[in-house]
Amino acid sequence: MPINQNYNDKELLLLVAEGDEHAFARFFRQWSPLLQHWIHRLVKDDNSRLEALQDVFIQIWTYRDKLPEVANLTAWLKTVTTHQCFRHLARQKAWYAQMTSQTAEAAGYPSPEPGAEHHLNFKEIQAVIQQALATLTPQQRQIYRLSREEGLNSDQIARKLNLSRGHVRNTISAVLAHIRTYLLQAGKIFWLAWILF
């Protein structure tokens, strides 16, 4: 899917904020070369690089309602990226600790079981998010489901449930904040101070 040049960055971010998966796919296509370049400057082995990239995008997605408010998107993405690189380097501490400089140089610090570890990392994050979703109130769940499973935007959800659009948006923001809290407590993300950007 080529980038649709009709969407400038701001409009694209507004669509992503509404949970539009196609818009987020365009965002992914647009930004992943730069984020990959950055990650390649900080993390050595290919599998950790892919994990870090995926986790950066999971973090962006869980902050989607806030994206239009970000004043300096490049700086914000840099912060998310350096954090996920730090997290993945720290995850591998025990592995590094076993290696002498010779073996480390020869091996280039690969993960012992790269493919599997990648899935494990993802499964852990998915499990944390699912734990958060398991504790929603019935109305939160109903609204969030219409957003994530039926792909409706807040206008469509508001019409369908006869609620105000503001209420729907606030509810989805509350759910995302709830997910972020769980990820934060599990050490998967850290708190991003929006005002600084």
Partner: peptide
């Protein structure tokens, strides 16, 4: 990278209950 992206999208689908 598309498979990686699709995993991102399923991570927060409210499906396990």
């Amino acid at each position: 990278l598309w498979p990686l992206f699709h995993q991102v999208l399923i991570a927060d689908k409210p499906s396990l209950q």
